[in-house]
Design a protein around this nucleic acid. Structure first.
Lengths: 341, 341
DNA sequence: TTGTACGCGTTATCAT
DNA sequence: ATGATAACGCGTACAA
């Protein structure tokens, strides 16, 4: 046998029409009227030829591919790898297939990824990069997605007219700043790189204001040396001794860099990350971090997407999922602290 | 505008036949005979309506989806996340789209993943789990893949009649064992979990034989506590003081567990991992590991797959990609050692 | 430039 | 009751 088995192959071998085969294999009500003998024969032939129905043909007819798309920067990053993995599962739970696209944290490649997904007729897309908004260049995609009521959910950022699921950093951030303030810090350094993490930064600055903490911004250069340079700076006098990193990978890099110059965490610096990647608890000292509820985040996103797919006139909705501080060992701990967990 | 723009929408608006639109948008030679005015109008309308050609329809006609599949255990594991990321890039370089499926390290789910990929008409599949072989249960899939000459490449394991790309562990393993032997170890412990990593184990045992080293096997239970139990054992007298872990994640877990009981690496134990994940150099001490050349591995796999797709009568081929020991800081280093890098 | 057949599975309609 | 016929979706390619 060479090439793919089709429904017609089965029909020919069984001596019936292909529509009959379709009825039988899909267990349609109409098939109940057929002779048992016929049905049995069809099932056996299908099994013998290892028939796999073509979703391509089915999709062309139904207009649905039972496929969702996820656009992330890239899954070599531990956080986005976990995110993508969660997305695969969440989609699977809804009997959808998830296509994962990497944009390499690049708006142009992100648009390309989106176009490819649209061409593949994904029924909906979850987009975790910030390039889809009316303010960005080349917003034809954005415009046509809105006009066509294409089901789209943004992850951790927002844009007019589109649904979004965001982490609500306020609780976790509040616990984090409170913990650091309790350790006597009046200034907290924080590091940004790549795209601005607007939500993270906004929440952080707001909480700092509340506790009258000075937020000191450090810009992290791209490449492996970005963190090292910052660490080279902060060991000099006059810098904060507490730092919030905007993702766990960076936090871990910073702790390692601090070790490399002979200092240690949390004795010399208090460090807190954001994300809550699994890796963080494999590291020593275990990373204290503001944990995003990935499962909840992705389940909500997929749920929402599926609802939008079923109902094209669904109005855009915005949800937020709370974060909590996971207290581990990269911040000195006075036993009077009551928050976090 | 509601719903998707099709080639017919453009044709209607331009007052031409859809076949004309197809010719123009695909820049076919025949379109050169058309009036410039017509062509221009078609392009403009396509742009205005943000036309995205349906790959579903195209695939149905051509029989090709320009899609490959990758089956891995799950991309929450750092190694497989890097692998999948490399796969996305490699496929993209060949103008293919890569579908990533997670089997959760479960043969039944693996077969399901394969079936889904076949139904989606992937032009070829890269399979990185061991469940596809004549010895396994439910080998109808295996059989029909062979019979249909379906393009399939196995990653790091082999099965009769199918192509494969494997890491050749001999060089890296040789360097590793030599390094440990040089440190005076006459016994080396090694840990296995999940599926047997046959290639890894075989290479290890063979090299141990060569240097007359005793290989002591520890079976790692599933779950977070598997490594802890082993560490609880090996601190007792009579156990080896050098260990080879069959993946970097486990190696790092073991080092952390060793730290937790107040011992340290490499002072008390020499530890070597396998894989060479990026994470390994973020950890402290930096992980000494036998590095697989992921880029080479995936590029070879995709190359081979693409060749098989173009030529259905391609004979199965088996390639191996060398590994090297990356010497970092989890093994004591005497300055007379010359191997590795 | 256009009309049309084609790929494959689905479903509504028609014939025995 | 049982099963066949045909139209459909969308883009492609070849004959007209």
């Amino acid at each position: 046998m060479h090439g793919r088995t089709t429904i017609s192959d089965i029909a020919r071998e069984a001596g019936v029409d292909k529509s009959t085969v379709s009825l039988v294999l899909n267990r349609k009500p109409l098939a109940r009227m057929l002779k048992d003998d016929t049905k049995l024969r069809i099932f056996e032939i299908a099994k013998k030829l290892n028939y796999q129905p073509s979703l391509v043909a089915k999709s062309l007819f139904t207009g649905k591919t039972m496929t969702l798309g996820l656009v992330v920067g890239g899954i070599e990053s531990p956080f986005f790898a976990e995110l993508a993995n969660t997305a695969l599962e969440a989609a699977d739970n809804h009997d959808y297939y998830m296509l994962v696209s990497a944009s390499k944290w690049n708006f142009e490649r992100e648009r390309r990824a989106l176009r490819l997904l649209l061409q593949r007729q994904t029924d909906g897309i979850i987009c975790a990069i910030g390039g889809l908004c009316p303010q960005c260049e080349h917003h034809e995609l954005y415009t046509s997605i809105i006009e066509q009521h294409y089901p789209m959910v943004l992850l951790d950022y927002q844009a007019d007219g589109l649904s979004s699921i965001c982490s609500d950093y306020s609780v976790g951030m509040n616990e984090a700043v409170q913990l650091l303030a309790g350790n006597g810090h009046t200034r907290i350094g924080y590091c940004l790189r790549r795209i601005q993490w607007n939500n993270k930064e906004k929440a952080f600055l707001s909480i700092c204001g509340k506790y009258n903490i000075e937020a000191v911004k450090y810009r992290q250069e791209e490449g492996t040396d970005g963190i090292n340079k910052i660490v080279g700076e902060i060991i000099k006098p006059g810098h904060p001794k507490a730092f919030l990193l905007f993702d766990d990978s960076s936090a871990i890099e910073m702790i390692s860099a601090i070790k490399d110059i002979g200092k240690s965490v949390p004795e010399d610096f208090d460090i807190i990350g954001i994300d809550g990647i699994a890796w963080g608890t494999s590291y020593r000292p275990r990373l204290t971090t503001i944990k995003q509820d990935l499962k909840q985040l992705m389940n909500s996103a997929v749920d929402l997407l599926v609802k939008m797919i079923g109902n094209p006139d669904w109005k855009p909705e915005n949800f937020s999922i709370p974060t909590r501080l996971m207290i581990k060992n990269t911040v000195r701990l006075k036993n009077n602290y009551k928050g976090g967990f």
